[in-house]
């Protein structure tokens, strides 16, 4: 099955991003495809290269980048939501790209299921 994923909360404060990542990873391991992960609301904060979590904790941003590199997952950050929150190309982590909300709608059209992770 081809999944689209929407992540609506930032890292660490809320579990939505963790759950979305674990879902994506599990789906890929089962042989499903992830069409795109779209980051919206505070979810855009998953894309900043400036986070430095403690060594003994998971690195949520790096984990997304690794998932993208290993599985060619398209990580898209909403431009309007990103600009509001100070996420720009200059501080964007590896594997993410900034684009418009149309990418979310397109994912809904092209994927078999669009799964929303948020509050």
């Amino acid at each position: 099955m081809k999944f689209g994923i929407m992540v609506n909360e930032g890292p660490y404060t809320h579990e939505a991003s963790d759950t979305a990542y674990l879902f994506a990873k599990a789906a890929l391991e089962k042989g499903h495809q992830i069409h795109r992960v779209f980051f919206y609301h505070d979810g855009v904060n998953n894309a900043t290269r400036l986070t430095e979590p403690p060594q003994d904790d998971r690195n949520i941003v790096a984990r997304w980048s690794k998932l993208a590199a290993e599985n060619q997952v398209d990580l898209v950050v909403c431009v309007a939501a990103a600009l509001r929150r100070g996420i720009r190309d200059e501080n964007l982590a590896e594997g993410f790209r900034i684009s418009g909300l149309g990418q979310l709608i397109e994912s809904g059209i092209q994927a078999d299921r669009l799964v929303v992770f948020g509050d």
């Binding site: 431009v79 684009s99 418009g100 909300l101 149309g102 990418q103 709608i105 397109e106 059209i109 092209q110």
Partner: peptide, 21 residues
């Protein structure tokens, strides 16, 4: 990037499909 379609160029694989959102 297109302002009205939020970064997506209308292509064959998107146009024509109508889903219930």
């Amino acid at each position: 990037m297109s302002e009205t379609t939020g970064g997506v160029e209308m292509q064959e694989d998107v146009s024509g499909v109508v889903k219930k959102f």
